[in-house]
Amino acid sequence: MHGPASSGWLLVALCAVTGAYCLVRMRSGGEALMGFGMAAMAVPAAAFTPPSWAWFAYAFVFGAASVRALWAARAGAHHLHHLAGAGAMVYMSVVMAGSPAHAHGQGGSGVPLLTGALLLYFAGYVLLTGVRLVPVTAVAGNGAGHDGSAGWGERPELARACRLSMGIAMVAMLLTL
């Protein structure tokens, strides 16, 4: 899932920080898994080329996350987005496992219709999340500090910004597929 090394490292940093924030908040282990998984997949090939079995391991881990998201979707539609994200990660892992000599993001190896559909979904998600991010106010009394402001882990705009950054990263990874 890689282009130039500098953009690859920026994608790694963005996804790792997002995954760490989700892990610290401990609200969504699925989002933390997605952030760290995307960071691992985005490491530039010049720095590290994973062994061939790693793509199958990614597919297995994100396949399990897909099953969990499908199960959780019974409780709310938000989990359908997690299902789409985990499914996209499975798809990218399978494509990378089947690419010639595990080309590690050299492009041209995905199913164009499926890749296009995923790109449309995540581009729409990024736009919608970006619009929702614009004026967000903290709810008083919900994790508020002494001055009435929300604590850093309870700020809704940070959670939305993390979702936005992971959506942008997914678009970037799908574009290089």
Rank of each mutant, 00 (worst) to 15 (best):
A65F: 11
V134N: 08
A123G: 05
S6Q: 12
Y21C: 13
F56S: 12
G130C: 06
A65Y: 07
A138E: 14
S109W: 14
T49W: 00
L128Q: 06
P51H: 14
Y91I: 09
Y91K: 03
G116F: 07
G143N: 03
S66I: 09
A32F: 07
A46L: 03
I168C: 13
M89H: 05
V94C: 13
A103P: 02
A47S: 15
R27D: 10
A101Q: 13
V12M: 10
E154C: 13
A117I: 05
L10G: 14
A84L: 04
L133T: 09
C162N: 15
S149C: 01
V94S: 03
V111E: 13
A13Q: 03
G98L: 15
L158T: 12
H2E: 10
L33Q: 09
L113W: 04
G151E: 01
A150D: 13
E154T: 09
A13G: 11
G35M: 12
F122S: 06
H104P: 01
M1P: 12
P44H: 05
M96P: 01
G3N: 11
R160T: 10
W152I: 01
M96T: 11
Q106D: 09
T129M: 12
W152N: 10
F56N: 06
W152R: 11
S66Y: 02
L83D: 06
S28Q: 04
E31T: 10
M26I: 02
P112V: 07
P156E: 14
H2T: 15
Q106I: 01
S52D: 11
P112Y: 07
S28T: 14
M38V: 05
G151S: 13
S7K: 14
G37E: 12
M92S: 00
G124V: 08
Y121L: 10
A72Y: 11
V17T: 13
V17Q: 05
L14D: 08
E157I: 04
G8C: 04
H2S: 13
G130Y: 00
V12K: 15
M166V: 04
R25K: 08
V139K: 12
V94T: 09
M96Q: 15
N142T: 03
L164C: 07
G105A: 08
A77R: 07
L164F: 15
G143W: 01
G141I: 08
A57E: 06
S52H: 04
L118D: 02
A75S: 14
T129K: 02
A5R: 11
G35S: 09
V136A: 11
G145F: 00
P44L: 01
Y91G: 07
L158A: 15
P4Y: 06
L174T: 06
L23C: 14
S149H: 05
